[in-house]
Each structure stands twice: as structure tokens, then as C-alpha cells.
Design a protein around this nucleic acid. Structure first.
Lengths: 356, 356
DNA sequence: GCAGAAAGCTGAAACGTTTTGTGAAAGCTG
DNA sequence: CAGCTTTCACAAAACGTTTCAGCTTTCTGC
């Protein structure tokens, strides 16, 4: 591999001049410039990114730390971030944490010693110790996505989780459901807690009793949701509707329901937050409060690049937050329920039409 | 950030000794060793990966070049590779080529200047120029996956494409279909050509006429398959079955069929190669010849790590190839067709039972 | 007690860049 | 043409490691 010295020799100039020419970092006469470029092409020179990074103290790599690359939500983020990053001359290092806090901290350490220019982080932890651990590492410019870590002074881009859970719950309530179950995410995580809180609020507001036994712990993963659904459906007083805390949770529940021989939505309704690709082909189509993933990822990487650029000028941007509104996609997975009260039955048609 | 000099000063030894201690590269007395480790912990030292890479001439990064990260097949590969790589002390740089040859060569160049230790490559190109371009770059140890590039002397791990296409076609033929369409991948790619060839062979063997107008060009992407399906279904002599060259192609076709108001499999049968996550929830379940993605990715990264290790010893391994057998997953997307001939009708039930 | 070997440590070089300070040549002004 | 400024190129240092050759010191065998 040719290095800058080879180019310098070929062009008959010093390596400083070659560097100046390539980076436009100093004024170089037109004549020399051409000689240098000719030499570059002649020897097939490409700057060694590692040496460059060493000298500059930072690389042109961006770390993307996500919870579960098997989840299409995450792979969509990766796709968008990669596209924008490449266009800006960066490459991305993808790290999967599998929703595990220790793994997250470990991969962050790896990214730090690689001196990545910035990090897009889907945090997985919560609590004071976790925040302390994050702050102890001196992270490069970082934008958090999806999971907000309250108390952490970092940019955040995500969706309005309360609105998402609220719109689904209200929808099911209007359809007459009262025994609504929820499969949550990992306890303590902002996303899960917010969605759960809005779910409970909605039940309260509708004077529907919140039954804690219908709130089963999941971890944002489909396989766990599948297993959690089985006992739920085995109960004599089984729920008439199940809300999954995210996309794959709802799909896992749906799969379990069908495998158990129940029909959806006839026997039980299902709804979830966030869509999946080809969700339109899943029958029944799962009613969902979809997140604008592409926009979220787009803002995240844009903010990060901005922060990286400004950081070089040792200026500082105050942490920003952007929350997107979810969009309701009504599928066929939720059916109205026969309600004893006539009043509820009457309101049903009207409000339902509004939603649709 | 503390560097090796800080540690040396703190421990009262030379930096050479610190390095020797950390890497076990030379004999160090127990007493010194402990002093060094104490100093490392005291100053919170972590070796600078960039400086290390510069000195060693290669980084602990592995490039993963895939065609379309939106395709679950690709994201599964990324997931498996990342997991194994992290465990082996490597991080992965993910690059998306969007099925574009120029982009592929560009990201390969980026990986080369980053001095990645190795590359997992889903090639996207074909032909002599492409092979030449690959060979001109002196790539680090590389394992190709999914797309074989005939003539390229590199490890390859993939699936038996002919068997996959053959089993689907035979299945449809046994169901009585004769007007079978295929939506192909990018012309010239090994995967697409092999699958197409086996498709044609199967038709020939069954004395079913291959109608070139029923073979429409796609590019392995769902949106293109969707658009390609519309004119196909608009024909007076529309096909009774459609085979998608891969998973998302079949899904795109299915979506188009349903959107046009046709029923699957009543009006038209659909089959595809390679499964998608939650494929079991898609109705009708698309009959598919599934690839063992995890195994494929597992072998690929294992081979790569092996090659990286051996390469250091300047030994050479001859290029290897491993081909996995596809597995047939019979869904509800293919229905038997009313065939005029009685004979075909009779054989139908028998052979079909064998497949199931 | 002495030659030689082994153990343990160190200084310095090298990896390939970017950047800074310096100085020579060229251009301008009066 | 003297004096000044501007333009252009360069040598050398620095980034943080690893490694090699060499230097002490200690051990071993006779």
C-alpha cells in the first residue's frame, strides 16, 4: 500500500506539501498541486485512515448502539443512519446490546477506545447507577434514541409514548373492552413505564378497573411475549384484548393466540406500538400506533453530525429533545365486544368511526 | 484519557514494560506485573485502539458489506456476525450497498483504508470487470456470502439455489400449475441466474412450456416486485402461480395481488425463496424454500476469524465453499389447480402428500 | 571465583499522518 | 534597487502504541 512518502517522492515534493494539497489545509501553487495529484493517481494512494485518526485524535467512525438488531425498528434506524453517515464520509460501527445493560457499557467502552467521532445510542439501562456509569465514561458526542434516560443530559429523539399507549387503549375502550391486558417491556425503562402509565391512566379515566394481574412483564422481545401470552389466555377470566408494548411483542402475542387455537379478533383483540415491514400482510393486520422511524433516525443522525462538527470548534449545544407523534394504523385485530350496557353500545359506532 | 506513558510513570517502569505486561509479549517479574496493573487501574488506562492498529498495521474491526439491510435475511446475518465478532474481541462496521455495484466498491475502499482485519461480503456485482475490480483492490481476508461470484477465489457460504428453485417449481407443477411466472433478481447475479435456471429446468422436465414473457425482471427488492406484479396480473392469460426470487420479492408480489383484489391462493398461488421473521403470521403463509441463515452466517464468520488468525502466520488456506440445503416450508399460498387431464389430477394428491 | 547464560528491564525506532514554525523565493512599492 | 510583504515549500515534531536490540543484574555449573 502506497503511503504519503511514496507520493511525495514521486511528485518531488515533501510530505507536508502532499498533505496540504490533499486537505486544502494550506496554499499550494497550481503547478505543484497538479504534480501531487498526478503522483497520487500514479501510485494509487489513499490516505491511511488509522494514521489520520491517530494524529487527529478521532476517527471518522460513528458508533450505533442498538438494543436488538433483529427488531425491524432497530434495523430501520441502522439503515437510515448508515445512509446519511456514509454520505457525510463516516462509516458506522454497529453494536447490539440484546437489551443488556452490561453489554451496553462494554460496547460503549469498545467504541470509546476506537475514538469514534460520535454515538447513536438506544439506551437500555435506567436508574442512578446507570447514569453514573454513562457519565463516568467520557463519551464523544452522543444522541440517544427511542429510550429516554431521564436525568441524562444528552440529545434525545423519540416518540410520544404516552400518546401511543393512550390512543390504543382508548380505542379498545371505545370498542367496549374492559379486561385489557398489557405485555410490558423491561421494568424501569422509560419507554415501557410511560406506555404502561398512559395505559393505566386511560383505564382510570374510563372508570375501567386496572387489574395488575393483567399486566405481565415482557422485555420488548417477541419470544418472551409469546411465552407470556400463554398463561394469560389460559385464565378463566382471560382478557378480551391484549396490548403489546412494542411491535414484536404484539406479534408474539398474536402468534401465541393463534397457536393456542384462539381466533383474533373474535376471541381476543390485539394491538401494539410500532409497525413492522410487511405488517400489511399479517392477518389480522395488527392495529398499531406507528412511530415515524425514518424521521426519528434522520433527526438523530443529523443532530449527531451537527454536534460532531460544532464540537470541533469547542462550542457547546444544549441538550435537545424531539418527540414525534405516533400515527394510528387500524387493522383487523380489534373487534368490538358485546357490552351489556346499552349506552356503551351506542357510543361505540360513533367514536369508532372517528378513529377510522 | 490516560496513555501508556502515564501508566509507566505511575508504576515507575518504562512504557515497554507496561506494554509487555498488558500483552504478555515478554517475560515480566511478578512484582513489576502487579505494580503495572495497579497503575493501570489507578489511572483508568485503556489502550488506544487506533495507535495499536497503526503500529500493528491492522485494526480489530470487521467489515460487513450487505446488499440491503432492510431485508431480514441481511439483518440476520449482521446479528449473528456481530455476536460472534464481539465475543472474539472484534467490532463490526456495517455497510449497505443497496444492491449497487459502485457503492459496493466504494464501501470496500473505505474498509480497506480503515485496515479492517477482514470482510464479510454479500457481493452485488458480476462479470469480469467486477472481478477485476475486486482483485485490483487488495482485500484483507474475505468471506463471501449469499451471492457467489464465479471465478473469484474467495471463501463462499450460501444455499443451494438450484435445489431451492427446483423444489418450489416442482411443487407448483405437482399442484397442476403450468403458467408459472417468476420475478427474478438483478440480471447476471449468480443467485438470480441459478434460481431461474433451475426454474426453467423444472418446467422443461415436466414438459411445461417456459414462457419468457412470464419471467419478469426484479432486483431482489419488494417495492420493485410489487410494481412488476401488476402488469403480470393484468394480462388476460395471467399466470396461475408466481415465484419470487427471494423473500421480499414474494411478499411484494403477494401484496400487489391482494391490493389488486385478487385472492391468494384461489386466484393465484405464490411461492418464494427464503423466509421472513414472523412469516408464520402472514396470511396466507407464503410457501417457501428457507435458507438456514444463522448457520450460513455462523460458518462465514467462523471461517473469517480463522483466516484472520492464520493470515497472521502468513500461512494460506485454499478458498472453501459450503452450500447448505434449503428447507421447504409449505404455507397456504399455493393451491392445486383444476387440470383438464385426469392423469395429472390423480398424481396430484399423492405427490403432494409426500411433500407435506 | 569465574565465564557464560538467563532473566528482567529499557531506550529508541517505527507505523503514516497533520501541523507548526521557519526560511527561501518571488512580488510589490516607492 | 532597497525594503517589505506575500507566496510557497519544507523539516521536524507529535499522536500512542509495539517491538527490537542492548544493557544490567542475577543465576548456574564447574
Amino acid at each position: 500500500m502506497a503511503n504519503i512518502r511514496d507520493v511525495a517522492k514521486k511528485a518531488g515534493v515533501s510530505i507536508a506539501t502532499v498533505s496540504a494539497t490533499l486537505n486544502d489545509s494550506a496554499v499550494v501553487s497550481e503547478k505543484t498541486r497538479q504534480r501531487v495529484w498526478a503522483a497520487v493517481n500514479a501510485v494509487g494512494y489513499a490516505p491511511n485512515a488509522i494514521a489520520r485518526s491517530l494524529r487527529l485524535g478521532k476517527s471518522r467512525l460513528i458508533g450505533v448502539v442498538i438494543a436488538d438488531i433483529g427488531n425491524p425498528f432497530c434495523s430501520s434506524i441502522v439503515r437510515v443512519v448508515e445512509q446519511v453517515a456514509i454520505a457525510a464520509g463516516y462509516s458506522i460501527i454497529v453494536c447490539n446490546t440484546d437489551e443488556d445493560e452490561a453489554r451496553e457499557l462494554a460496547v460503549l467502552d469498545q467504541l470509546i477506545v476506537q475514538h469514534v467521532a460520535g454515538i447513536i445510542l438506544t439506551p437500555v439501562g435506567c436508574g442512578g447507577d446507570y447514569i453514573g456509569a454513562l457519565e463516568a465514561r467520557n463519551l464523544p458526542p452522543t444522541v440517544t434514541v427511542d429510550q429516554k434516560v431521564p436525568g441524562l443530559a444528552r440529545d434525545f429523539v423519540g416518540v410520544d409514548n404516552r400518546a401511543a399507549a393512550r390512543m390504543l387503549t382508548d380505542y379498545l375502550l371505545r370498542l367496549g373492552h374492559r379486561r385489557i391486558a398489557m405485555i410490558t417491556g423491561r421494568a424501569g425503562t422509560w419507554t415501557s413505564e410511560e406506555r404502561l402509565a398512559a395505559f393505566i391512566d386511560a383505564l382510570d379515566d374510563a372508570d375501567a378497573r386496572f387489574d395488575p394481574s393483567l399486566c405481565v412483564p415482557g422485555n420488548f422481545r417477541g419470544d418472551v411475549a409469546y411465552k407470556a401470552t400463554i398463561p394469560l389466555m389460559a385464565r378463566a377470566d382471560r382478557p378480551t384484548a391484549i396490548i403489546g408494548v412494542n411491535n414484536v411483542t404484539a406479534l408474539g402475542a398474536l402468534q401465541a393466540i393463534l397457536d393456542l387455537g384462539f381466533r383474533c379478533p373474535t376471541d381476543v383483540s390485539v394491538a401494539g406500538i410500532d409497525d413492522v415491514p410487511w405488517g400489511g400482510l399479517v392477518r389480522p393486520r395488527v392495529t398499531t400506533a406507528a412511530q415515524p422511524v425514518e424521521e426519528i433516525a434522520g433527526v438523530a443522525i443529523a443532530w449527531l453530525l451537527e454536534r460532531i462538527a460544532v464540537d470541533a470548534g469547542s462550542d457547546t449545544i444544549a441538550p435537545r429533545t424531539q418527540i414525534f407523534a405516533p400515527e394510528m394504523i387500524v387493522g383487523g385485530s380489534c373487534a368490538p365486544i358485546a357490552v351489556p350496557e346499552k349506552v356503551a353500545d351506542r357510543t361505540l359506532t360513533r367514536t369508532d368511526a372517528t378513529v377510522l
